[in-house]
């Protein structure tokens, strides 16, 4: 059942986040809730299932944002793996820690997006980094702790609290 509902839920998430960005920011800024979900999964899910889900979410983002297949898959897989490692060694889960992680991965993600984009043209424009980064990173940082709580409430449906039980 999970293999059927999870891809559908992720698909819905990616479509809805674009719709929300259009409503809230009038299409002037993206709202990448999927990045928050990947970070959340790194805290709550085991490596195999979380890795597969993050990669699939990356694939959906590649399809719907128009980037070539592999860019978001790589970014989300990296974000998931590294956050999973951090979450395994640091037992911090406070709001500020989440905000810091979201900010950090937002910076890394936009860097990689610019890097991949500069590959065909050979020009890496660092000034674009700020343009790409700040309009979307600040709303994500603010939303981060709330999304974590909301997903904790929904988490039992997909059994995403595997990691919490691993720790205790």
């Amino acid at each position: 059942m999970m293999f059927l509902t999870v891809p559908l839920a992720l698909f819905l998430l990616v479509v809805i986040q674009n719709l929300l960005a259009d409503i809230l920011f009038l299409g002037r800024s993206p709202l990448e809730l999927s990045l928050l979900v990947v970070i959340y999964l790194a805290f709550r899910m085991n490596l195999v299932r979380g890795g597969i889900i993050s990669s699939f979410l990356g694939f959906l983002m590649d399809c719907l944002s128009g980037t070539v297949t592999g860019i978001y898959i790589f970014i989300y897989f990296t974000v998931f793996s590294a956050t999973h490692y951090i979450a395994h060694h640091l037992y911090g889960e406070g709001d500020w820690f989440i905000i810091f992680l979201v900010f950090f991965w937002g910076v890394v993600e936009s860097f990689f997006l610019l890097l991949f984009k500069s590959l065909p043209t050979g020009v890496f424009c660092l000034s674009k980094w700020g343009e790409l980064l700040f309009p979307q990173i600040i709303p994500l940082c603010v939303l981060g702790p709330f999304v974590f709580r909301a997903l904790d409430g929904l988490g039992f449906i997909y059994g995403v609290n595997e990691r919490s039980s691993e720790r205790t």
Binding site: F11, S55, G58, L60, D62, C63, L64, V68, T69, G70, I71, I73, F74, F77, T78, S81, F116, L119, P120
Partner: peptide
């Protein structure tokens, strides 16, 4: 991760028709 990175870089330099799954999504 390295495989995904290779996939991304490979696809950037490739001009192939859109895949069935991508079209479907």
């Amino acid at each position: 991760g390295g495989f995904f990175l290779f996939l991304a870089v490979y696809n950037i330099h490739r001009e192939e028709p859109t895949s069935f799954l991508r079209k479907l999504i």
